[in-house]
């Protein structure tokens, strides 16, 4: 992997920014160069949230992603908005619980993961984001429990430390799907 540009997008509240921060810390733990850039604006609850994460072997140039290598779409508006921007040969991960349509492009690899349903069924309804991150890391060949634990410990506050194992379970669930 030289440089991977990843765009995560969904509703506010789905944990998009958190998932991105986890990815960035995972990269940092692996000794990579990383950047994390959120969309910011006059957002309201239920509005769209997205963030751009770049993980690279070299210093990161522009932190702004116009054409992601990987798109993680957690809702339909996100897929509608960003499907066209993915580079040919890129990857789209879609939460198929919330996105009923199929990806229209045929020059990208698509993974449909019913992340929201899986999260509810397994007793951690707020961790659909991490199920998708698990799949993403598996695709990248970066699924490694020790590094993921380190990264999780950086993004989960000490007060919520009991959530670490649950997050790890969600990651594993995604990787195995």
């Amino acid at each position: 992997m030289s440089t991977k540009q990843m765009l995560l997008s969904g509703f506010g509240g789905q944990g998009i920014l958190f998932a991105g921060k986890f990815l960035a810390y995972k990269g940092l733990t692996d000794g990579k160069q990383v950047s994390w850039l959120p969309s910011y604006g006059p957002e309201m609850r239920g509005g769209t949230a997205s963030c751009s994460v770049i993980i690279s072997d070299e210093a990161v140039g522009s932190p702004i992603i116009s054409n992601p290598d990987i798109l993680v779409a957690m809702n339909l508006p996100s897929l509608d908005k960003f499907e066209k921007s993915v580079v040919p040969g890129g990857v789209i991960l879609a939460d198929s619980t919330l996105i009923e349509r199929k990806v229209e492009r045929d020059d990208v690899t698509v993974y449909y993961i019913p992340a929201t349903r899986l999260a509810s069924e397994n007793g951690f309804p707020t961790l659909a984001n991490m199920i998708l991150m698990g799949k993403l890391l598996e695709i990248l060949g970066e699924f490694n429990a020790d590094d993921m634990k380190v990264a999780l410990s950086k993004v989960i506050s000490a007060k919520r430390a009991d959530m670490l194992e649950t997050n790890l379970k969600a990651l594993e669930l995604g990787a195995k799907f």
Partner: peptide
């Protein structure tokens, strides 16, 4: 600028 303020880096 807004990008520099909002972005995270190591």
């Amino acid at each position: 600028d807004g990008t520099m303020g909002q972005m995270m880096e190591p």
